[in-house]
Design a protein around this nucleic acid. Structure first.
Lengths: 174, 174
DNA sequence: TCCTTCATTGCGGTTTGCGTACCCACACCC
DNA sequence: GGGTGTGGGTACGCAAACCGCAATGAAGGA
């Protein structure tokens, strides 16, 4: 009955589609195609996407809501802050004494912090901060260093943003 | 006649609104409000935004197209790759021998590379790569090291993405 | 087998997107 | 001054898209 051009064969029924623990959802071919479509153009109409993928518009709408609620997909306006008046961005490498997770949560609450990732290597955390000017950045790094659980910080001031992409090639199957 | 709630006083006429060189656009209050709206929800209808900001829908549409064409704003679907089956992300600190700009351009062409920024500090470039698994990541870093103009690389493997935000607080005036 | 669950579909009423025409302010030039 | 051009905002109408809802059908369990 249904036939999508997304995968090689039918994906109907979604019987094989289950969600694991939060943060590790399982996507089928249709989900992947939807994600890819919105990565290319976040404002493409659901009807149009539905036509291309050979399903009903309501299906796309449902899938979108589900992915969105699950925190897997989010359609947002992105900018290049440096082209917008934020004249001091930086990546800060942080070494922590306690659990990095805890420090990461504290950092995530700060307005200037746009990106926090727990990493393995010379640092425990990488933190991207967006400031209006150098004075603001200085004040920000001082606030960081004062935080509980933070041992050292290394600041890399952004000179130029050369690429910012949200399409990650072929989505792997699960 | 026109009255927006965006700024303190009228922004009519836009006489004061000019664009500088590419990459350094000047935004007025209405632009900033539009950007903020789409940062919060990239699929909100233009009509709805227009109502909130007390302008005609066509105005929002025009502004959006202009910002989009200027490369200042882009509405896209963003995901957490780690929650999507890409099991090996990393930030790579790169030291270059020649001009970083040139290396940055070469890197930007690679599919696995999602983010490239020229920085000041211990590294010349920060490069984010998105790979499907560790084997892929290993192969990728080897390809990096072989690139002309790259002296050393330091790889920070992502363990967990703790925060990913695209709203950067109050947009500074220009 | 019957029943329950759940994703998908089809269908209307309402809302939005988009092309077009018109208006106004400003700048420039003869 | 009058004429002309340009850029941005507004008004309007129609095709298209969004949204809620009831119906359908497949899968799984008792």
């Amino acid at each position: 009955m249904r036939s999508t051009d997304v995968g090689s064969d039918s994906i109907a029924g979604m019987a094989d589609r289950k969600r694991g623990i939060a943060g590790s959802a399982t996507l089928d071919d249709l989900d992947r195609a939807l994600v890819a479509a919105l990565q290319a153009d976040g404002r493409e109409s659901f009807r149009n996407i539905a036509r291309r993928l050979n399903v009903a518009e309501g299906t796309i709408r449902n899938r979108y809501e589900r992915l969105s609620d699950a925190g897997v997909l989010d359609v947002v306006g992105v900018t290049n802050p440096l082209a917008l008046g934020f004249d001091a961005m930086a990546m800060v490498g942080v070494k922590t004494s306690g659990r990095p997770q805890q420090v990461a949560e504290a950092l995530s609450g700060m307005e200037e912090v746009s990106y926090v990732v727990i990493v393995a290597g010379q640092f425990d955390l990488l933190v991207e901060v967006v400031c209006t000017d150098h004075a603001h950045l200085l004040e920000m790094t001082e606030r960081l260093r004062a935080l509980d659980g933070i041992v050292t910080t290394d600041t890399f001031v952004y000179l130029k943003l050369a690429r910012q992409s949200f399409e990650h090639g072929q989505l792997p199957r699960r």
